[in-house]
Design a protein around this nucleic acid. Structure first.
Length: 882
RNA sequence: GGGACGUUAGCUCAGAUGGUUAGAGUGCUGCGUUGACAUCGCAGAGGUCACUGGUUCGAUUCCAGUACGUCCCA
């Protein structure tokens, strides 16, 4: 034994190993994909994380899944391209920089647009590679030479191109419209950026007296009394008898005194509140719609900071919440407040800063969605795009079918500026890829729209902008449509849907064939990880303490596609222990390969050899099938069980006598061959899941080639499939386990050699036992005799009955007869219960007549076997009781 | 209000086109350092597969409803 091998530590330490191999892979350009027409493409575009963000567990999961798929397909011989990149994240990034400026007591206006943008670019330079470095430590095998950024030259060109085309096709329009205004972020946001949260609130009932008859009034229920300052009408349901006589007449708005027409609109729900709704078109989206139908004026009373404006009269300057309190007091004083009820209602909040959204009128840019949505619906319906799991198709379709126009302008500076120019002298408005200085109509001075586009506008183009669009590149030719998109379920509407309609529109082909949706990583109590709760787990801490392989393995096991996953540190330990198990199995192999010669001829395969090679083929087949179906967790489980419960627990133990030279030198050679082959293939199968440790071990083992990354994904070898060997091993495992159980229950010290008599009437069973008696002796530490039948009952023997074999272990002086009888009785009871159930079926005529014959046969065989077992157990109990 | 998902061992989760001895990890109990590994080994205990009906020869699995939980949409 060489010193070198003794130096392999018994505990695997991932830290140096991981950085070492990642650097090697990246420097060797193993992640780079070139356009190769004759190779089958496999392409994933990475959901771009926020450029100045940090890696969180969601990223870790998402990118682990993508890396597994990419490494696996690459090993299968695909031309695998995984395109990485980052997103400029308009609101979030701008907010960060504004925060920084605030520390210097500066606002962005102090710098002006240009200087401010310089600061943001500086910020991006400073933090922009943080997350990509973090992705490297996770092991992501993406092609960094093709890394992109949503605001780089190419992506920006694509954004401009798309905007202009949609504009020219009439699918982008500008309108004075009600949108969601965030008073904190100082910008509009799109409908899906609004999060509805149920909040406790009050429903205020207010009297609106009739103009003609001060005695008569309508009671209005509202949760937002401060908006009454912007009321322009009252609406009732046209079927509502209570109010019909007032339709067309007027009410007087309390406090203000304004005259409000009563209108009839089917929108009003007669059963909610009082059935009469005050109309505030400038501050409520529903009122806005109704207002447009009825040609109502739009009176704005709240400003962009969320304060009451000059239209609010004496309330001007109050913020919306203070104003509400004051209005309520004033209404009370007037006697106009009828009652106040507590109720919970949904309030829209900004998904970035969690400020309550203020619906607000303003001029914004929109994308007309209907014409874009239709083909996107078709593509999912006819299966050109498949969601995994399938149920997300419905969620997607439901949203697409009810889609509203997309507000794409943002009142920010950081982003793609809207390429539209307005003439200062005439009404001319021009959209142009290249900057325009003067009006083509009147020659007047033009100014560009100050707003930028929604960040998602650029990410919607990601699958083709990253491949070179609008140019016709060879990359687009080979890799578009991409193979699969991997992302979280929280982002289907934001991103997936928009990529689909954009891809269909501009590439005339779906952007990906499959969408693999995963759940969220929750904390151990099932809550979302969030900064405010402080319950987040930093993937980098985990990589530091347990290694990236363990993190990856933990994230994808014990979980199924589309379902959320709770983060438990215990599970992380389990993954690390598995890595350590692999490490030690290979350590053992190394210790016995000092003289290994791949060309040496050995003896014939033993049963154990044939068995493990056959089981390996099963593992290859199953793991590959699961991967094809995106069941990555199941694939990992198969490999975990094969390597731990079969290879380590049984094969290595069975091979030890040969490896230790207790038999012939040729036997040792064969055992070496098998252990090397099985271990190496196991590592290859595990490589996509645990890239680092598998590379480290693979490199230490006898191997050919530069890296495990470049090996071929194992294919099942039909000639190595051996059902006979699997059947025989199953018998041996059952018998050995039975012997061990007796030893354990009778407290035979592990070091003490026991005696065992195995009785098998069936010749084939005897054959199995006799041929493999060495295995039985070594793994049960027993002296074994095989008999056809028991000539005389051994004195004081404990026993067990397995399929086809009876096990006796004479234990003079060690056996506790009562305990043994109890044990046998317990087993007997279980067997009898099973037997009763099986016989119940066989006595049922309906079952015999209607069940398929193979099922009936199976039950019959089971009954016979259980019957024999029961008889044997009964006999044993009788014998001992005598 | 509409919808999706979940409810299986103490905990976290798998699973079966309907017939299996219903599994894994972890935790628990007992024994243990046998020339890879105590981040380990051997053995064991632990489940009315949420509830109620229906379909069926047979349901934990399919269908309907109920309860509880999580989430999405409005």
């Amino acid at each position: 034994m060489s010193e070198h091998i003794n130096n392999i530590p018994t505990v695997y330490n991932p830290r140096e190993v991981e950085t070492k191999w990642y650097r090697h892979w990246e420097e060797s350009k193993y992640f780079s994909a070139k356009v190769e027409k004759d190779k089958k493409p496999f392409c994933i575009v990475m959901p771009p994380p926020n450029v100045t963000g940090q890696l969180h567990m969601g990223h870790a999961l998402d990118n682990t899944l993508q890396d597994i798929l990419t490494r696996w397909r690459r090993m299968q011989g695909y031309n695998a391209l995984w395109v990485p990149g980052t997103d400029h994240a308009g609101i979030a990034t701008q907010a960060k920089v504004e925060e920084q400026l605030a520390k210097e007591s500066l606002a962005k206006y102090d710098l002006g647009r240009e200087k401010f943008l310089e600061r943001v670019w500086d910020w991006k330079e400073q933090y922009g590679n943080r997350i990509t470095t973090q992705l490297r430590s996770l092991g992501a095998s993406c092609d960094w030479d093709r890394e992109r950024f949503t605001m780089d030259e190419g992506c920006s060109k694509a954004v401009l191109e798309v905007f202009i085309r949609l504009f020219e096709q009439g699918l982008i329009y500008r309108d004075y419209y009600i949108t969601n205004w965030c008073p904190q972020c100082q910008t509009t946001i799109s409908d899906i950026e609004v999060e509805h949260q149920d909040k406790p609130g009050q429903l205020y009932y207010i009297k609106y007296p009739a103009k003609d008859n001060p005695e008569e009034y309508i009671i209005i229920a509202t949760t937002r009394p401060e908006t009454m300052l912007g009321d322009v009408a009252v609406a009732v349901n046209p079927e509502d008898d209570r109010y019909l006589h007032l339709v067309g007449k007027s009410l007087i708005l309390p406090i203000v005194g304004r005259e409000l027409p009563v209108i009839a609109d089917a929108y009003c729900d007669p059963t909610f509140g009082t059935g009469a709704v005050k109309m505030t078109p400038a501050h409520d989206p529903n009122d806005f719609e109704i207002g447009r139908r009825h040609g109502l004026p739009e009176l704005q009373v709240i400003d962009k900071q969320g304060n009451m404006n000059e239209q609010a009269g004496k309330y001007q300057g109050l913020d919306r919440w203070e104003c509400r309190k004051q209005i309520v007091r004033d209404l009370e004083a007037l006697g106009a407040l009828v009652k106040v009820e507590d109720m919970s209602h949904a309030v829209g909040h900004c998904y970035r800063c969690n400020t309550a959204i203020e619906p607000m009128l303003s001029k914004q840019w929109f994308v007309k969605m209907k014409p874009l949505a239709e083909p996107a619906i078709e593509a999912a319906k006819d299966g050109r795009i498949k969601f995994i799991p399938e149920r997300f198709t419905k969620i997607y379709l439901n949203w697409m079918e009810n889609i509203r126009d997309w507000c794409i302008s943002r009142q920010l500076w950081w982003g793609h500026r809207i390429p539209v120019y307005y003439c200062q002298d005439c009404d001319e408005m021009v959209a142009s890829v290249t900057p325009i200085k003067e009006c083509s109509k009147c020659g007047g001075k033009v100014e560009q729209d100050p707003d930028v586009l929604d960040t998602w506008f650029s990410s919607a183009l990601w699958p083709f902008s990253t491949l070179g669009w609008p140019d016709k590149t060879p990359e687009l030719e080979q890799f578009y449509p991409t193979s699969v998109l991997v992302t979280g379920r929280d982002i289907i509407f934001f991103w997936v849907a928009r990529m689909i309609f954009s891809g269909l529109r501009f590439m005339e082909e779906e952007p990906f064939k499959e969408v693999f949706i995963h759940g969220l990583v929750l904390d151990s109590q099932g809550r979302k990880m969030s900064k405010s709760l402080g319950n987040g787990v930093d993937p980098l801490d985990v990589i530091e303490s347990h290694g990236a392989d363990s993190l990856r393995f933990m994230l994808i096991t014990g979980n199924t596609p589309g379902n959320d996953l709770r983060f438990h540190f215990e599970r992380l330990d389990g993954a690390r222990n598995f890595a350590n198990k692999l490490w030690n199995a290979s350590r053992f192999a190394m210790m016995n390969l000092g003289d290994y010669d791949p060309a040496a001829r050995g003896s014939e395969y033993t049963l154990a050899d044939r068995w493990i090679l056959s089981r390996l083929q099963g593992a290859v087949t199953e793991a590959t099938d699961y991967l094809e179906r995106y069941e990555l967790g199941e694939a990992a489980r198969v490999l975990y069980e094969f390597s731990w419960s079969e290879f380590c627990d049984w094969y290595i133990e069975l091979a030890k006598p040969r490896l230790f030279g207790r038999t012939t030198p040729e036997d040792r050679v064969t055992a070496q061959h098998v252990i090397v082959q099985v271990l190496r293939e196991t590592l290859e199968l595990l490589h996509p899941f645990m890239p680092f440790i598998t590379e480290e071990i693979w490199q230490k083992l006898p191997h050919q080639g530069e890296s495990i990354m470049l090996t071929n994904w194992p294919k099942p070898e039909a000639t190595l499939r051996d059902e006979t060997a699997e059947g025989e091993m199953a018998v041996l495992i059952e018998v050995i386990t039975a012997m061990r159980r007796i030893r354990g229950e009778m407290n035979v010290p592990p070091g003490k050699k026991a005696e065992a008599i195995l009785v098998a009437i069936d010749e084939s069973f005897r054959g199995i036992l006799n041929r493999n008696i060495a295995y039985l002796q070594s793994l049960a530490n027993a002296e074994v005799t095989v008999l056809t039948e028991l000539k005389e009952e051994p004195d004081q023997a404990a026993s067990a009955v397995t399929r086809g074999v009876e096990v006796f272990m004479p234990l003079r002086g060690l056996i506790d007869i009562d305990k043994e009888i109890a044990r046998l009785n317990k087993e007997l009871k279980a067997v009898q219960a099973d037997l009763a159930r099986v016989q119940g079926k066989l006595n049922n005529e309906g079952f015999l007549a209607k069940a398929p014959s193979d099922v009936v046969e199976k039950e019959k065989a089971k009954a016979e076997e259980l019957g024999m077992k029961a008889t044997a157990l009964q006999e044993r109990v009788k014998m001992l009781s005598a």
